[in-house]
C-alpha cells in the first residue's frame, strides 16, 4: 500500500543575519505498510516520526526539501497526487481534541469531512451517521461542541472524521497520549479493527508498551532513520529476535523490564551510524559510514554488527 524508500527531509534555516544552515532531521528512512496491516512507528521525540506523517500527506512547511521515494499503491506520491489523495484515500487521525474546530458541532465536522472526501450531501449525511454509530457515539453527540465531550469521546469523533471517507491508508499520530489504560485500549482497538477490515494503518507513537499488543510490525526510529523494522512479536523477554541494540534498549527501558536508561540522548552523530556514540559495540566502521539495511524475512535492520 505505502512504501517509503530512503526518505530524506532537510530544512533550511536562517541563522544570524543572512547565514543559512541546513538541518537534516530525517535521513535514509525506509518502511512499508501492507493492506490489512497495523504498523507501529516507535521513537523518541525528535526522531522524525511526525515529519514522516507530514511528508506522506504533503503538509511539510515550505522551507523543507524532500528526497527519496514515497510510493502509494505502487505509484509515486507527487505533491499533486498528495493533494488529491489526502482526506480521500489517505487520512490522518490527529493527536488531540485541539484539532477539532471549537465553533462547529461535532456532527457537522464529520459531515464536512465526508463531503470533502467527495460525497454528495445526502450520501455524506448517511456516511457521517454510520461513522457515528460505528464508534458508539449517540446521535445526540452530533449536536455537541468539542468542549462538551471528554478526551476519549473526542478521539472517537476524530476517528470517525478520518474514516468516514473510506480511506485506504490511515495515519494515527500519538493515539494514546493522555489517555488512561481503558481509553487507550479502545483507541487502538478501533485502529486494529480498521486494519482487520483491510486498511493499512500507521500508528505513530512513543508508547511501545501500549501499541505492541495491537501491531503486526514495528518500525523503530532513531536519529531520523529506521534502525529496525521487525515483527511486533519479537519484542519479548527473549531479546534474540531484536537485531538492533536501540530496539533492545527500548524494550529494556520499560518499567516492567529493567527500567534501564543507558541510551537516553536523542542526538544522532554527524556521519556514520546515528546510534554509534551511544552503542556499546560501536567501532571504526560504525563511526565511518551509516549502515545499509540488512534484509530479513520479517523486516530489516541497519547495524554493522547485526
Amino acid at each position: 500500500m505505502l512504501r517509503v524508500n530512503d526518505l530524506t527531509i532537510s530544512f533550511t534555516r536562517y541563522g544570524r543575519g543572512v547565514s543559512r544552515d541546513a538541518l537534516k532531521p530525517v535521513c535514509g528512512l525506509n518502511l512499508d505498510v501492507k493492506p490489512g496491516e497495523l504498523l507501529a512507528v516507535i521513537g523518541s521525540s525528535g526522531s522524525g516520526k511526525s515529519l514522516l506523517a507530514h511528508a506522506i500527506l504533503g503538509i511539510l512547511p515550505g522551507n523543507c526539501r524532500v528526497e527519496g521515494g514515497l510510493l502509494f499503491r505502487g505509484e509515486p506520491l507527487t505533491p499533486r497526487r498528495q493533494k488529491a489523495l489526502r482526506g480521500r484515500s489517505i487520512a490522518l487521525i490527529p493527536q488531540s481534541v485541539g484539532f477539532l474546530n471549537p465553533l462547529v458541532r461535532l456532527g457537522g465536522q464529520v459531515r464536512r469531512a465526508a463531503a470533502l472526501s467527495g460525497m454528495a450531501g445526502g450520501q455524506a449525511r448517511h456516511a457521517a451517521d454510520a461513522a457515528f454509530s460505528r464508534y458508539g457515539l449517540a446521535p445526540a453527540v452530533s449536536r455537541y461542541f468539542p468542549h462538551q465531550v471528554s478526551g476519549g469521546m473526542a478521539r472517537r469523533v476524530l476517528s470517525a472524521t478520518a474514516t468516514v471517507g473510506d480511506a485506504d491508508l490511515i495515519i494515527a499520530d500519538e493515539p494514546t497520549t493522555g489517555l488512561h489504560r481503558e481509553a487507550s485500549r479502545e483507541s487502538l482497538g478501533f485502529l486494529r479493527a480498521l486494519a482487520d477490515a483491510g486498511k493499512s494503518v500507521l500508528v505513530i507513537t512513543h508508547d511501545l508498551k501500549a501499541v505492541l499488543p495491537w501491531a503486526d510490525r514495528v518500525a523503530v526510529f532513531h536519529g531520523g532513520t529506521t534502525v529496525e523494522l521487525t515483527a511486533a512479536a519479537n519484542f519479548s523477554n527473549d531479546l534474540s529476535g531484536l537485531r538492533h541494540p536501540y530496539s533492545r534498549a527500548m524494550w529494556m527501558a520499560l518499567p516492567e523490564n529493567e527500567f534501564a536508561a543507558e541510551h537516553a540522548s536523542t542526538q544522532g552523530g554527524e556521519q556514520g551510524c546515528p546510534f554509534s556514540y551511544l552503542c556499546g559495540c560501536s567501532d571504526a566502521a560504525c563511526a565511518a559510514a551509516p549502515p545499509a539495511p540488512v534484509l530479513f524475512e520479517d523486516g530489516f535492520v541497519r547495524c554493522h554488527h547485526a
Binding site: I42, G43, S44, S45, T177, G178, H206, L208, K209, A249, M250, W251, A253, L254, P255, F259, A260, A261, H263, A264, T266
Partner: peptide, 17 residues
C-alpha cells in the same frame, strides 16, 4: 504529575533514575 507520560521509555527511565 504524569511527568514522563509523553516521553519514550528510555528517556522516561533516564529522568526517573
Amino acid at each position: 504529575d504524569e511527568m514522563t507520560a509523553m516521553l519514550d521509555a528510555i528517556t522516561q527511565a533516564h529522568i526517573w533514575r
